[in-house]
Each structure stands twice: as C-alpha cells, then as structure tokens.
Design a protein around this nucleic acid. Structure first.
Length: 255
DNA sequence: ATGGTCGCGGAGCGA
C-alpha cells in the first residue's frame, strides 16, 4: 500500500496539480491537509473519476483534512474525540484494509511564545492522548500529516538560523515525541540518516529554488507498520512548476 | 533584505 501525505494549501486552487499527481503516481491512499473547502464544495467528481473514495472534514477558508483511497474507507472519525473545544477541522481518522490512519494538520503556532504557539502545544498534547487511547501499537498504525515540527538539524536547511524558532523549538519537538511515545517511529529514518530531505519551502523567500526547506510532513508508524515499510520518498516534481503548494507530497510504502 | 508570496475573499489574516 502506497500512502501519501500532502498539505495542498487549498484543494480547489491545487486541483490541476493534485489530478496530475494522482494520475502520475496512482497512490492507494492520500491524506490531505489544508483543503480549505467546506464539504458541500469539495471537488469530488474529478477525484472519484480516478477511482478514489473520499472522506473529508472541511471548513470555510482555513484548515480542512481529507482521505482519498482506492480501497473502501471505514470507521471514519473527525476531530479529536472528547476534545470538542478544538473547533478547527484538523483531524480525520479512518481504517483502510488493515491500516489505521490518522491524518493531522498540526497547528502552525506562528511564533515561539505567542498565544498560537501555546495553543499548538496544548493541541499536540491532546493528540498525544488520542493516539495513546485509540491506536493500539499492535495494529498497523499510520499517523501522518503536516506536523509543523522538525525532528532535528537534519530536517533544517540552516539549523543555526532556525535554532529555537517556530517549527524547530524544543517544546514543539518534545510535543512530537510525546505523540510518538506509545511506540511510533519516524518512517523516513528507518531508511536514511541523510540531512537535507525537506517537505516544505517558504513561498516568500522562494525557498524551493534556493534549496531552503524544512522537513515537517511525517509518517509515524507503529512497529508492525514500520516493519512493513519499504520506502519513504518526497515527490519534488509536485513542488516544482506552475502553481505548486508550498509542501511536497511524501509517499510511504507499506508492503 | 526583519522583507518576501500565496490563498481566501474581497480587507486583512493565516501560513
């Protein structure tokens, strides 16, 4: 099973690129973030036309997550159960075949120390509880999405410049570790220790052309899923060209 | 370069 995570930064604006990607890569499952579309306006016809079922959890203007799958999508859960004080559409879970999926659009946090940053840490703590309570590590569990957090210097193009900054601060990294504490592993690092593998490049600084990126989109796998994981790849072609998202899709293969 | 560019929605916010 080839599973993709992709922050598309508006699905409707990204449709030409999304359709191109689906036809070129033909993944089995796609976890989307920042769809920025209410469910009534979700552009489902063209996606279904390529053979995908869809589960979506959208809202107006901001956020929004969705799962596309060639196989039936079962047991869909939207939001963080019991945490209704988080009004944004940032979480959708589902089961596809024998894989339990959790698709996350983690709060960005804007700047270390601001109110949005504090909210990010609280939100991630709630996700950690949800993972611990609802995703048994004896199953094939895939927690993926835009985490808006790097693991370490290898994920950062200029670690000195970014040290302690948003997406790189220790409290954020600790919150990410807490989500993984029940037994999730970073799938990319099963396969390589290389630095410089990035998934997001800032529009404003023309980061992609400069090679100035960060790795903030991850696949966190339970032991059975990690054992079955044969590759993790970033599709740089989808980040290049006309009207790309600021994130590249990441493809994780589970045999 | 303490800026810059996107997307949404139709000004300013979020990223």
């Amino acid at each position: 099973m080839r599973i993709v995570t992709w922050n598309v930064n508006s699905l409707r604006a990204r449709m030409p690129r999304v359709l191109e990607f689906l036809e070129r890569q033909s993944p089995d499952v796609v976890c989307l973030q920042e769809t920025k579309v209410v469910d009534e306006l979700f552009p489902r016809d063209e996606i279904e036309g390529l053979g995908y079922s869809i589960a979506f959890h959208g809202q107006k203007t901001y956020n929004g997550v969705a799962i596309l799958s060639k196989a039936p999508i079962e047991d869909v859960v939207m939001g963080i159960p019991g945490k209704d004080h988080h009004p944004e559409a940032r979480v959708i879970a589902a089961k596809v075949e024998d894989v339990m999926l959790l698709d996350l659009y983690v709060v960005n946090g804007r700047e270390v120390g601001c109110d949005k940053y504090e909210y990010k840490l609280k939100w991630m703590a709630d996700v950690a509880e949800y993972v611990k309570e609802s995703f048994p590590m004896t199953e094939k569990v895939v927690v993926t999405g835009d985490f808006n957090v790097t693991f370490d210097d290898r994920d950062v193009y200029d670690p000195a410049k970014w040290e302690g900054k948003i997406l790189c601060s220790q409290p954020e990294r600790d919150a990410l570790a807490k989500i993984m504490e029940p037994g999730l592993g970073d799938a990319l690092r099963k396969h390589t220790d290389e630095p410089g593998i990035y998934t997001w490049w800032d529009f404003r600084t023309r980061g992609f052309k400069r090679g100035n990126g960060l790795r903030i989109d991850h696949f966190l796998l339970s032991p059975p899923a990690l054992d079955a994981c044969s590759s993790v790849e970033v599709d740089l072609e989808a980040r290049d060209g006309e009207k790309p998202s600021d994130h590249a899709p990441v493809i994780c293969t589970i045999d």
